Simulated scan of single mutants.
Amino acid sequence: MIAVISPAKSLDYERAPPPCTPTRPRFSEEAETLAKACSRLSRKRLAELIKISPALAKLNADRYRGFADAPERPALFAFAGDVYVGLDAYSLDEEAVAYAQDHLRMLSGLYGLLRPLDAIRPYRLEMGTRWAPGDRSGRDRLTDWWGDRIARALGEELGAEGSGVILNLASEEYWAAVDKFVPAGAGVIAVDFREGPDARFVSFHAKKARGMMARWVVEHRIQDPAALPGFDADGYRHDAQASTPDRLRFVRA
């Protein structure tokens, strides 16, 4: 089973990652192509596209213009958003990180598909951005540019891993890059996290819970999907009545 999560808008390039050997992203050339295209956008246009403040637009414009010389670090230790608070990568032991390298994947607007130890440079580019290099119509999205490449790569990795099952812990925005092109024969299991007796959806808690479940999978070396209802971190419990075989619900009272 391969678990798939989203990246994060927040980055952490200050804290030193633990000793590890970085790997090269599968789509590093595509990332460079996208970074060059982004470097030609004005700050104003960049701010409009990814809906950020002028200060963040300047930061990211500078990042893209100096992309080739920017520092790299493993993706697992580069992202710092809510999902990664739940994942808490810095407290994983070496064996768990090694398992994650084979069984955890991150979707990325810039890098497409990442393994945890793939070395990445700082960036900000959401998968749902209404922009694509070379698009003159103004109607394309970044997902149009990626097409089926990400899903095909994920399919190849599923074949190598052997289970044929994807645990979808990604947001809808990022899963859209895979959804239409899910490899034939692959099983997809989505997870729905809810809060309280009325089973409310709370985005912040759901993001953190996705990270916690990704951690649980790699710590316990979960390979059989039948074991997934056993997830119980931070008070979450499987709601069998509200679940289906391809969509599991967990509720925290």
Rank of each mutant, 00 (worst) to 15 (best):
F181C: 10
Y84C: 04
R249G: 12
R121Q: 13
D224Q: 06
G128K: 10
A3W: 01
D88P: 02
A151N: 11
W131S: 09
A35L: 02
S91Y: 06
E195Y: 11
S243Y: 04
I120H: 01
F204N: 14
F193H: 01
N168F: 04
V165W: 06
Y236R: 07
G134C: 13
L167H: 05
G147R: 04
D224K: 08
E29G: 11
F231L: 03
A226S: 12
D118P: 06
S91G: 09
R43T: 15
R237N: 08
D234Q: 10
T244K: 12
A209S: 11
L158A: 08
L248F: 14
V218N: 06
E48Q: 10
T129L: 02
A186S: 12
S108I: 11
E195P: 11
Q241P: 06
T23S: 12
V97P: 00
S163Q: 14
A47D: 12
F77V: 02
S108E: 04
R24E: 15
K208D: 00
R249F: 03
C38E: 01
A199E: 14
A184S: 13
M213I: 06
D102N: 15
P71F: 02
H103C: 05
L117Y: 00
Y64M: 13
G134L: 12
T33L: 09
S137N: 09
I2H: 01
L56Q: 03
N60S: 15
A160L: 09
G187R: 15
V97D: 02
S203C: 11
R45S: 14
G66S: 10
A226I: 07
A226V: 11
L125V: 01
Q101E: 15
S39A: 15
R237V: 09
L114I: 13
G159S: 05
R200Q: 11
L41C: 12
E161W: 03
T23I: 03
P229T: 02
A35H: 04
P133T: 15
R43G: 14
D239Y: 06
L56Y: 06
